[in-house]
Simulated assay, not measured.
Amino acid sequence: MEKMAECMHNNGKTCCERHTWRNAAEKKKLLARLRRIEGQIRGLEKMVENDAYCPDILMQSSAAACAIHSFNRQLLEAHIRGCVTEEIREGGEGKVDELCNMLQKLMK
């Protein structure tokens, strides 16, 4: 699922080396969720511009935060079921260590 590759940005300088290649259905699902989150954020901007009542903005902000958490859970599940599981089957444990370190950072 994960492939090593180099991408070039910033006037030809390498910015990253790792990529995860997703199937079309998984990518579509993740992008749709991100677009809904983007819409919620735009809604928050309009609420602030229109001087909406603070508790109403806070409720919308909370909904956007929940949507981001849901996106993260979906992506984490895909990573564990794909990249991590694949490496374990191949006898490696680097992704498990990476996952543990990432979870420690996320849970601060």
Score class of each variant (00 low, 15 high):
100 C>W: 11
29 K>T: 10
22 R>C: 04
52 A>F: 06
64 A>S: 10
43 G>A: 05
86 E>D: 12
51 D>L: 11
57 I>R: 01
64 A>G: 01
16 C>W: 06
4 M>T: 08
98 E>R: 03
9 H>W: 07
68 I>T: 03
27 K>D: 11
88 I>W: 00
18 R>C: 05
71 F>D: 04
21 W>I: 09
18 R>Q: 06
92 G>R: 04
106 L>Q: 09
64 A>Y: 04
27 K>W: 05
43 G>N: 04
9 H>M: 14
63 A>M: 08
98 E>V: 01
60 Q>G: 06
93 E>G: 15
57 I>W: 01
92 G>F: 05
44 L>P: 01
10 N>K: 15
88 I>T: 01
61 S>T: 13
29 K>M: 12
41 I>E: 02
26 E>C: 02
28 K>N: 07
97 D>M: 10
81 R>I: 01
92 G>I: 02
66 C>A: 15
86 E>N: 03
9 H>G: 14
86 E>T: 04
31 L>V: 13
51 D>R: 12
88 I>M: 04
35 R>M: 08
106 L>G: 03
68 I>K: 02
19 H>G: 00
86 E>F: 00
38 E>W: 02
11 N>S: 13
26 E>W: 01
89 R>A: 10
4 M>H: 09
15 C>S: 10
31 L>N: 12
101 N>S: 12
5 A>F: 09
58 L>F: 03
91 G>K: 05
47 M>D: 01
43 G>S: 05
26 E>G: 01
27 K>Y: 11
37 I>A: 06
38 E>G: 03
41 I>P: 00
20 T>Q: 00
55 P>L: 08
71 F>V: 07
58 L>Y: 11
95 K>A: 09
95 K>C: 09
89 R>Y: 07
29 K>F: 07
59 M>C: 10
5 A>N: 10
89 R>P: 00
36 R>F: 10
28 K>R: 14
30 L>T: 04
74 Q>M: 15
75 L>D: 06
33 R>N: 08
76 L>V: 06
34 L>R: 12
34 L>Y: 07
41 I>V: 15
22 R>H: 14
91 G>M: 03
87 E>L: 03
32 A>K: 15
7 C>Y: 13
5 A>C: 09
76 L>C: 04
66 C>G: 12
11 N>E: 14
23 N>H: 09
9 H>R: 15
55 P>G: 07
92 G>N: 08
108 K>G: 12
41 I>T: 06
56 D>Y: 03
108 K>Q: 11
37 I>T: 10
18 R>D: 07
105 K>P: 03
17 E>Y: 13
96 V>N: 04
54 C>E: 11
6 E>T: 09
107 M>F: 13
12 G>I: 02
47 M>E: 01
40 Q>L: 06
12 G>A: 07
76 L>Y: 05
68 I>D: 01
89 R>D: 07
66 C>F: 11
97 D>I: 13
95 K>L: 08
43 G>E: 05
3 K>W: 00
101 N>V: 03
6 E>A: 06
19 H>L: 05
80 I>Q: 00
16 C>M: 05
35 R>I: 00
22 R>Y: 15
33 R>Y: 05
57 I>F: 02
21 W>Q: 10
81 R>V: 02
9 H>C: 13
82 G>E: 04
86 E>S: 00
96 V>A: 03
63 A>N: 11
60 Q>R: 08
4 M>A: 11
52 A>G: 02
35 R>D: 09
